[in-house]
Structure formats: structure tokens, C-alpha cells
Design a protein around this nucleic acid. Structure first.
Length: 229
DNA sequence: GCGACAG
DNA sequence: ATCTTGTCGC
């Protein structure tokens, strides 16, 4: 898989922040993301006391949202979780999982923030920039930003701001369920990202591609660990 | 110094 | 994220 940038993955807070500020300059927010015929969803699950990670990726058709394929990889965890540095912990495995798809997707949905991040490089923006492909983030909770209350019905939304800067959308994807935090990763703007996220939410709070990846990563049984017992 | 803090 | 069973509600 061809990456637009190369950098170390095991970093301290200072190094990580420097890399994020650098890559954030490559993020491009565009009005639309071109034709979409396949959408991918990614998520990670942790096992064995947080020493092993499973990255799962799914691919769905668009329109129709029909499941096409999924792929999982298992890797050792090299970085502890640190708010703001999540992508360094999960992306190495995610990149390997994506490489396992038989066909690339035109849009990638990530579990986590896009530019709604202290340095504007959450996991969806980090991934989008490395691949130079359209990507967006859907997070179940807030990392940064302020917003007004969101209406109770599906589709209700409130812009997410960091000062004067619009960094995403707080979006209700189902009636009376907690809203999600949607932000552009790369090659999409805030409005377009929210539209795609909502369009992918059919029966549940999370977009189907992410929900399915979530399920696969959570119920994953690591073959390496099985071997040791 | 104190509180916040994706997964 | 993960550790964990049943349980309240639509």
C-alpha cells in the first residue's frame, strides 16, 4: 500500500504532536469526494490485557449498503492509549487490514475523530492523508470542540466548533439516541462528511460499515494466542 | 495547579 | 478499549 508520508509509529507525546502538526497541513477539505461505489469501515478491538490488537475492515456497496467483504489482522500493541495520539496505536494494524481488501473503497469511515482533534489530525484525518483518499471520522464521544444542544430526532445536527473554526458536526443518527461526533478526515468538508455518515446509518446509531467492523473486531479470537494454549 | 481527555 | 449478567424498556 502506497503511503504519502512515512514516519515512526512508536513515539512520545512530543514527537507524535510534531508529526501530527506536519501531516495536518496536508489535509484537504473539499465540497464532495467524487463518485462512490464502495465504502469501507474500520475499527479495532483489544485483547489479552491490551497487548494484542485486532483491526477489522469491512467493504459495502454504494448505493444499497450491501456487505461485500471484510478482513482482519492481529498485531502486537506497540503504543499505550493516550488521548490525542490514538492513531499511532491503531493505524499500523488498520493499514495492514485495509491492504487485505480485494478492492479499495472510495470512502473510508473510521471509528474516532477526523479533524475534531487538538492538532486537527484524528485517526480519520491521519489515515486519509497517508492514503490520500476520502475519509471521515465518526466518534461515539467528544474529544474537543463546543456545540449547541442537538435536536432529539434522527438527522438533527449542531455544528462543532473550536473557537471560530468549524471542525465537525454533532449528529443524531437515530431518534433519542446519543448523538455522534462526525468530522472530515480528508477530501471532504464538514457538511459532506455528516451527510455520508447519516446516509450510512440505517438501523443503528453507528454507520453500518463501522458497526460491522466493530462487531468483527470485538468478537475476534487471536490465532496467535490460541496457539499458545 | 485543576480539570478534560477519541478508543 | 476491556473487565462482565442480568435486566429494564421499546
Amino acid at each position: 500500500m502506497q503511503l504519502r508520508f512515512s514516519h515512526p509509529w512508536v513515539v512520545d507525546s512530543r514527537q507524535g504532536a510534531a508529526i501530527q502538526r506536519e501531516l495536518a497541513e496536508a489535509v484537504r477539505l473539499e465540497r464532495a469526494c467524487g463518485p462512490v461505489s464502495h465504502i469501507a469501515g474500520i475499527d479495532c478491538g483489544f485483547r489479552n490485557g491490551g497487548t494484542r490488537v485486532c483491526a477489522a475492515v469491512t467493504r459495502f456497496t454504494w448505493p444499497g449498503l450491501e456487505f461485500v467483504e471484510s478482513h482482519r489482522v492481529y498485531r502486537p500493541v506497540e503504543m499505550p492509549y493516550r488521548p490525542g495520539l490514538l492513531s499511532f496505536r491503531e493505524l499500523p494494524a488498520v493499514l495492514d487490514a485495509l491492504a487485505g481488501l480485494s478492492e479499495p473503497a472510495d470512502l473510508i469511515l473510521c471509528d474516532g475523530q477526523g479533524i475534531a482533534h487538538p492538532r486537527r489530525l484524528g485517526i480519520a484525518a491521519h489515515l486519509g492523508v497517508l492514503l490520500d483518499r476520502p475519509a471521515l471520522g465518526v466518534a461515539k464521544s467528544r474529544l474537543v470542540g463546543e456545540h449547541a444542544p442537538v435536536g432529539e430526532r434522527r438527522g438533527a445536527a449542531a455544528p462543532l466548533y473550536a473557537g471560530e473554526e468549524r471542525i465537525g458536526t454533532v449528529l443524531r443518527t437515530r431518534d433519542r439516541v446519543r448523538p455522534v461526533y462526525v468530522s472530515p478526515g480528508h477530501r471532504l468538508d464538514c457538511a459532506t462528511a455528516a451527510e455520508w455518515a447519516l446516509a450510512c446509518c440505517t438501523r443503528y446509531r453507528l454507520p453500518e460499515p463501522i458497526r460491522k467492523a466493530d462487531h468483527l473486531a470485538a468478537k475476534a479470537s487471536d490465532p496467535v494466542m490460541q496457539e499458545q494454549s
